[in-house]
Design a protein around this nucleic acid. Structure first.
Lengths: 252, 252
DNA sequence: CCGATGGATATTGGATGCAATACGCCTTGA
DNA sequence: TCAAGGCGTATTGCATCCAATATCCATCGG
């Protein structure tokens, strides 16, 4: 691990990027979102450096960025800790998300759907309906539904053509452990319910019913939030018995 | 400027903070918001280091954070540039802000005002009324009004007790040059109009009229946004004649 | 006269070493 | 037995050095 490093295929990097710093940031961000790094966990710079095969410099940069994104808490001279979202936090996030998605839906309804976005939404809805009609439930179905749900909402944000709105929604979707918790308790009934919501939202948008689209989107997100909140506690990592201690005694 | 640095009173630092990195971040953030660093300007690490009397290390950290906050654009291997907000961007921001402030107002109306927040709002409104009644207009009046406006909205966010909402609103208020542009064209009429808006919002909240509070807040922010947008172009820095070039030839 | 090409150089990216800080633990005293 | 203080050490903060990269500019070829 000398200075030049010979640029081998860095193990631990999920994808090559422009700079090591960006690469590390992406790796750590994914890790926080999917629960690899659990809420309350200390982000030790040296450990991460060793794990990713880089020096502390890009790691420090990445940690600062993730803290600015709200994924980590930073305590000067102490370090970075994965931020813990309480049930209250999740409620707050979804309250905000619901009005933002409402805005997106209304905007698209008023602006009108382009053929491109109409096609995308139609495709997503068709596939979702197929999933519903199959009347089967499995890991694969759940993942497929997760992706379709993502795609539906994503298409609406994209059609709204509001850069700032995208950034805010992105922030609202960046919750530690969210990927690990979301959809975990879903079943065929909730799938059908969500599909029906999506269909109504789409029709309202297509019919350029701005106020109705906004209301439906808000309500849809609100209900999704309720489901998530009802299950959040069950997946919470246990409370921090001791305050996040600085040093973890090594095995040796 | 040797390694130990003897910790003198660093010139250029506006306030001492826990770490140099935080201090630099705050200084640069203020500079971007108040227009000291103009949109499109390159943030040269060496120049900033020299200006602030620190090494490049904390500067680099701060730049990464500001980029994550959306104040700077980052191009790998090229550097950081102050993000340029077009009229479209400002429209987008205010579209989002209006629904977020609407949410805040509705939340407070439904939750009910604590005595503390009721007192704060009352105080702010009284002072604003005094400002209106004086029927004078000056730099000082404008600044006072700016602060009172800030305080009014801030009190409502605080009363909403929604941490995430606060973060999102904060992001929506972080626009380069905003401090330099905002309120610049205001006069006694717009002051009176805004005061009247604030009063109505307050009364709706106090009367626990959630839907009405939401509507009024949305509309109020929307109108403020219209005013800002109408004047944004006039204060825009001229278009970048050449693409943001990497190197600026020195005088020597 | 204009476009391509190859240094020269400014600037960023990253690694390393050292200083500063805070935490854990042990000692000491009552 | 428990509280207070000091020491050792892990860890972060920062400065500096070197490598990598992109831009600029001069030169060259057409």
């Amino acid at each position: 691990m000398g200075p030049p490093v010979a640029d081998g295929p860095w193990l631990g990097m999920r994808q090559s990027m422009a700079t090591r710093g960006q690469s590390v940031a992406r790796t750590l961000r994914d890790g926080v979102l999917d629960g690899t790094y659990k809420p309350g966990a200390r982000m030790n710079e040296v450990d991460i450096s060793n794990a990713l095969g880089v020096s502390r410099t890009p790691v420090r940069g990445a940690l600062g960025v993730l803290a600015a994104e709200g994924l980590l808490d930073y305590v000067p001279n102490s370090g970075y800790v994965v931020r813990r979202y309480t049930v209250q936090d999740v409620e707050d996030v979804y309250a905000a998300r619901s009005v933002l998605e409402g805005l997106a839906a209304r905007t698209v309804a008023e602006r009108g759907l382009s053929d491109h976005h109409r096609g995308m939404l139609h495709k997503v809805l068709s596939e979702t309906q197929a999933l519903c009609d199959a009347q089967e439930w499995s890991e694969e179905v759940r993942d497929a539904w997760s992706r379709l749900n993502e795609a539906f909402h994503e298409a609406i944000f994209e059609a709204a053509e509001n850069r700032h709105l995208r950034e805010l929604i992105g922030k609202s979707r960046s919750i530690p452990q969210l990927q690990a918790v979301k959809f975990r308790w879903h079943d065929l009934d909730t799938l059908a319910e969500s599909y029906s919501d999506h269909l109504e939202i789409f029709e309202a948008i297509a019919d350029r019913q701005g106020a109705r689209a906004e209301y439906l989107a808000r309500e849809h997100v609100y209900r999704s939030g309720r489901r998530l909140i009802a299950n959040w506690r069950r997946f919470e990592t246990p409370a921090p018995v001791r305050r996040p201690t600085r040093r973890v005694p090594r095995a040796a």
